[in-house]
Amino acid sequence: MPHEVRAAVAVAPGAPVEVLPILVPDPGPGEVLVSVQACGVCHTDLHHREGAVGDAFPYLLGHEAAGVVEAAGPDVTDLAPGDFVVLAWRAPCGRCRSCRRGRPWYCFDSRHAAQPMTLRDGTPLAPALGIGAFAEKTLVAAGQAVKVDPAARPEAAGLIGCGVMAGYGAAVHTGGVGSGDTVAVIGCGGVGNAAIAGASRAGARRVIAVDIDDRKLDAAERFGATDTVNSRGTDPVEAVRALTSGFGADVVIDAVGRPETYLQAFSMRDLAGTLVQVGVPEPDMRVELPLADLFGRGGALKASWYGDCLPSRDFPVLIDLHLSGKLDLERFVTETIGLTGIEPAFAKMRRGEVLRSVVVL
């Protein structure tokens, strides 16, 4: 029997989010019903609301979530009612060519719930990133619900479901930051600061935070940045070079995802250095680079998909780091809000006033 719950829905491109009643089915084979406790407000939710990532309206927003399993489908054996879980938007299928080659973090056929959640009139909802967690309950594939230590507060734990994992993994997995490396991170929001935390934990001897907002740079220092550069009035490429004996950084992470920041990141690298793009660009953005520069500078230009993470492996590790005091997830939580506070949270996000607003249900 479907469950009627309140949820935040984007009904049309650019239209304000509406809190509406929706219907969530009982779980079928391979699915779990999750009672959502907290869900972060991510830039990707705003991209969905504005129609920048597709036109499958209406969207059920929300994907950085933690909650408790309420019911499991008949064939689900590794989750049970009462389990505390963080939701992942990648659940490796185990069958695609990437999974078969031992690279499940690149899974090309990630699993989602088979049954749709709907409006009262039966209109199917497109859940953001296959989750849709700005809702009192949501239906996901069992592989998307990763059991973690329930000692973590849901408001903090849910953030590893997207932004924190994306940034941390961009440094540790995609960038391969190691002991003694120099690292620059452009953009010190939630993803960028998670990359700073990851680089610091991986043993980087210098972590340079680059942003146009002094408030974000102050926050970056608390996550482990050794140096800060305000690029509003300073050439960030020259500043990073000056801080690295004129060479540039071994790894540069673009957590903004704009052409200008990508070009800055490209030029900030040392010879044979690595550029990692984890900031999500808009579809019409383009970058032009001289082919001779691509060859002459060498190194690697990488896109980081979800921090190249394996949720079943990495989520419990990050929660354990948090509970042991080695990764302060609470520091990412700027404010807690209700479902009706999502539109004001989007406005604060645009103005750069928050790392994360978190919806508490």
Results as ranks from 00 to 15, higher is better:
residue 1 M to S: 12
residue 7 A to D: 07
residue 16 P to W: 13
residue 18 E to F: 10
residue 21 P to S: 12
residue 21 P to C: 08
residue 23 L to M: 14
residue 28 G to C: 13
residue 30 G to M: 07
residue 32 V to H: 05
residue 33 L to C: 04
residue 35 S to H: 14
residue 38 A to I: 01
residue 39 C to P: 05
residue 46 L to S: 11
residue 51 G to C: 11
residue 56 A to C: 11
residue 56 A to Y: 00
residue 73 G to T: 08
residue 73 G to M: 08
residue 75 D to Y: 13
residue 77 T to M: 04
residue 77 T to I: 02
residue 80 A to D: 05
residue 84 F to V: 00
residue 87 L to K: 06
residue 88 A to Q: 06
residue 91 A to R: 08
residue 105 W to M: 06
residue 111 R to A: 15
residue 112 H to P: 00
residue 123 T to C: 11
residue 126 A to L: 02
residue 132 G to L: 12
residue 139 L to K: 11
residue 139 L to F: 03
residue 149 D to A: 02
residue 149 D to H: 03
residue 156 A to D: 12
residue 169 G to A: 13
residue 175 G to E: 12
residue 179 S to V: 12
residue 184 A to R: 02
residue 190 G to Q: 04
residue 193 N to P: 02
residue 196 I to G: 02
residue 203 G to W: 02
residue 205 R to I: 07
residue 222 R to G: 06
residue 223 F to L: 11
residue 225 A to V: 07
residue 227 D to L: 00
residue 228 T to Y: 03
residue 233 G to M: 01
residue 247 F to C: 02
residue 247 F to Q: 14
residue 255 A to V: 10
residue 255 A to M: 14
residue 261 T to V: 07
residue 264 Q to L: 04
residue 264 Q to F: 04
residue 266 F to V: 14
residue 268 M to A: 14
residue 268 M to W: 10
residue 269 R to H: 03
residue 270 D to Y: 04
residue 283 P to H: 13
residue 286 R to H: 09
residue 293 D to M: 04
residue 294 L to V: 15
residue 297 R to P: 00
residue 299 G to M: 02
residue 301 L to M: 08
residue 304 S to I: 00
residue 311 P to Q: 09
residue 315 F to M: 08
residue 315 F to A: 07
residue 322 H to S: 15
residue 324 S to M: 03
residue 326 K to E: 14
residue 328 D to E: 14
residue 328 D to K: 12
residue 332 F to P: 11
residue 334 T to L: 03
residue 340 T to W: 14
residue 340 T to F: 14
residue 344 P to H: 12
residue 345 A to K: 03
residue 348 K to R: 15
residue 349 M to R: 02
residue 350 R to L: 11
residue 356 R to A: 02
residue 358 V to T: 08
